[in-house]
Nucleic acid binder design. Structure first.
Lengths: 137, 137
DNA sequence: CCTAAATGCTCTAGTAACTATAGGTTCAAG
DNA sequence: CTTGAACCTATAGTTACTAGAGCATTTAGG
């Protein structure tokens, strides 16, 4: 049986976060010691590692909740799991594309200024005047 | 003089967001009509457009607050504005790089499964077992 | 056995940047 | 003069935690 601190070290999830996940119902309430401290068995560690890994990949707790629910029914079709992961992949790609557009504009804004006072600083003017950029955001 | 709704349409910032920015002190409290409704003059529109554009570029309200402060003093050196924009550019590039790593792993996870039940679904297993991935996150 | 340090407990509030809702008021057009 | 759109304030909810206060338990050393 692991204490909450040992579980935290084993999974890389911080102690307050474990308690937070418990309150959200993502992990089960564990057994308690005589002094009311949480004691975890092996399955809790696996479940928490699952959550950790999925969070690292950027999945929302809602998506993770669904995946956990699916994983409890090994006989169910897994199409839904593919939908969730696929949707997240698409969202990730869209976000990358958006950030790349922003990167291009930020690079343009920051590179074009060689003056030294705010009054004619290109950075400030570019931010103030939307017309100076591609305008695609 | 614009009503708050007209200002919202002119800048693309939603009405509740304008009031929110006012409460944060990002924009000045405007004059009011006899019936206590907000009435805006031209400068408010420019300032709000500045904020909007900077937000679209992903700058935090804190960073925007600093830039607004700088823009009020046209004679000050603009090195600080370059630092803010440059830091944001670097953060954006780092975020893109991170998302691209996640994209690669998500693509790997979602592509490798051609079974049909949860029990042996690659998506679920890949999330449960950190050892199956590159492990660089 | 006793004590001190580390770890644990609950609860509340704070973070970013809004968004939504409730319940009421004002404005402009017909 | 009435109606409907737009306005007002204030509070609470969103996401995924994190920080802090104030107190209890566990464990290792002496």
């Amino acid at each position: 049986m692991l204490t909450i601190g040992e579980l935290a070290r084993a999974t890389g999830v911080k102690v307050p976060t474990i308690r937070y996940y418990e309150k959200l119902g993502l992990i089960a309430e564990p057994t308690r010691s005589e002094g009311n401290q949480r004691r975890y068995a092996g399955p809790a560690r696996e479940r928490l590692s699952f959550i950790r890994h999925a969070r690292d990949l950027g999945l929302s707790l809602d998506a993770i909740r669904e995946l956990l629910h699916l994983s409890e029914n090994p006989d169910m079709p897994c199409a839904e799991a593919h939908v969730i992961a696929g949707a997240h992949l698409a969202a990730t790609r869209a976000r990358i594309a958006q950030l790349q557009r922003l990167e291009a504009e930020l690079a343009r804004i920051t590179s074009g200024c060689d003056t030294s006072t705010i009054g004619d600083c290109h950075v400030i003017h570019a931010l103030a005047d939307h017309g100076l950029c591609g305008g695609d955001h």
